[in-house]
Design a protein around this nucleic acid. Structure first.
Length: 427
RNA sequence: GGAGAGGUAGCGAAGUCCGGCCGUAACGCGCUCGACUCGAAAUCGAGUUACGGACUAAUAAUCCGUACGUGGGUUCGAAUCCCACCCUCUCCGCCA
């Protein structure tokens, strides 16, 4: 959510941001509603001030036994008028809220112009594509043949877009989670938390999934409980409606959770394999930082996510999302795309974003500067560190051998009882 | 799920029966600044909610409004009365 005052006084910047995002929102309509709201507010508040004054007068008169009937009648009329104005205000407040919730964040000036992911700009690459002297297989083929990935049974248990991990695959999933959490807590300074994976509406409002993106979520019955689409939601909401001390910043949390996405509207996309699932594991990184340093913090966060891929020796590239591809709440996002030889393309494995104060305003996350009396909004950032399932996909495809076996990356072996290779047992 | 108690500032807590300068909200703690001290403790003094609007260069000062878990209702006026819901605690039931 943007600051209404900011929208009022920096209309051109906001309009330019909308244009850059290819948004069709008509800001003028919003500004007209805002003006009307302030006019109504002025009248209503003026009446209330007079009513408050007269109310005090009545209290005094009653105490001294004076007759207050005249004043009471006058106030009756006034209160009726106030009730009408309040009614109108409630409606216009609702409209204002709806509007302000639907305005996306303003892209940072460094965000490139563009329409979709083909316009994203490569920042750097790390490592190199593995040299394979055979035709690489896709992960689902390898994983199924090696007995670790079982999509059919998952479909029986639940439905499509789920997987049953067995044996080495279940263990590798657990190993990856442990490796990621260990690196983020012991080397990169994150405090680990394990939050609920079911959250209420307020939390989803705070991080911006609601009210606009309800169809992406799994909702429990008709309750106001939802399965989280990412740990960003519960972790960011730890500090909802909280004023932190300036000396507390930056706060950095990492969390492993399962994530749940309805994937409505992605029919036919990535239907094979583990790339796009209704349920997947992810280690998430969340930072609450001082507004002055949030772009340095974004680079830091990106580095923390990259460090996992480097330890696993997986080739990747970093891209800056263009304005048209930018998420609703984000001011700037880097995607890390890992190389998948089987698919012969780079695929997103982490997304690192600076939301500036966009989430903090909705969620009410502030800090009190040491010098000032007024609290200010913090900046929030988050990124995957990393998507666990896709990391396994990358390992399978990058470390596959001609005979269909897969080498376990060295960094992962301590977490897998020293296992060096995944292969079919011959008996 | 059943019975009971409760939700008021950073924390604890009074006020609710009987509606009216009681919300910059008693009292206590904490925190900040100052005095005292070589320094500290103790003590004394002062300060310490947020949001919205008006006026502004201002996220300064000032003025106004709103907020006592949330949302409604009654009333000239609600922390206080009425209704619904949410949450916390205690006991019972159930359960990993």
């Amino acid at each position: 959510m943007l600051d209404i005052k900011f929208v009022r006084s920096n209309t051109d910047d906001v309009k330019n941001g909308l244009r850059k995002r290819r948004s069709k929102l008509d800001l003028e309509q919003f500004l007209a509603i805002d003006q009307k709201r302030r006019d109504l507010l002025l009248e209503a508040e003026d009446l209330k001030a007079r009513r408050n004054q007269s109310s005090g007068e009545i209290a005094r008169m009653k105490k001294t036994g004076e007759n207050a009937d005249g004043l009471l009648a006058e106030l009756g009329v006034m209160s009726t008028r106030i009730k009408v104005l309040d009614e109108e205000l409630k409606e216009i407040d609702r409209q204002t809220e709806e509007w302000v919730m639907s305005i996306p964040n303003v892209p940072h000036p460094s965000v490139p112009e563009g329409v979709d992911d083909t316009d994203n700009v490569q920042v750097r690459t790390w490592g190199a594509k593995p040299v394979l002297d055979f035709t690489p297989k896709e992960h689902w083929e390898l994983g199924t043949a090696l007995g670790g990935l079982d999509f059919e049974t998952a479909a029986k248990i639940t439905g499509s877009r789920f997987v049953l991990l067995k044996g080495w695959a279940a263990r590798m999933e657990r190993a990856l989670i442990s490796l990621m959490l260990d690196v983020q807590t012991m080397e990169n300074g994150y405090d680990e938390v394990m939050p609920p994976v079911i959250v209420n509406r307020e939390s989803l409002m705070g991080t911006g999934q609601l009210p606009k993106f309800e169809e992406d979520l799994f909702r429990l019955g008709d309750s106001n409980y939802y399965l989280i689409p990412t740990a960003e939601v519960p972790v960011t909401n730890i500090y909802r409606d909280t004023t932190l001390a300036e000396s507390d910043l930056p706060i950095a949390h990492c969390a492993y959770t399962a994530c749940f996405r309805s994937e409505a509207g992605s029919y036919g996309k990535d239907t094979k394999g583990m790339i796009r699932q209704h349920q997947f594991d992810k280690v998430e990184l969340v930072r609450f930082v001082h507004p002055d340093t949030s772009y340095d913090e974004l680079e830091k966060l990106l580095g923390h996510a990259e460090s996992i891929l480097q330890k696993l020796g997986l080739h990747y590239r970093v891209v800056t999302l263009c304005a048209g591809d930018l998420g609703f709440s984000s001011a700037k996002t880097y995607d890390i795309e890992v190389w998948l030889p089987g698919q012969d393309k780079y695929r997103e494995i982490s997304s690192c974003s600076n939301f500036e104060d966009f989430q903090a305003r909705r969620a009410g996350i502030r800090y009190k500067p040491a010098a000032s009396k007024k609290s200010r909004l913090v900046h929030t950032l988050n990124g995957s560190g990393l998507a666990v399932g896709r990391t396994m996909v990358a390992i399978l495809e990058n470390y596959q051998q001609a005979d269909g076996s897969v080498i376990v990356p060295e960094a992962l072996r301590p977490y897998m009882n020293g296992q060096e290779k995944i292969e079919l047992k011959k008996d």
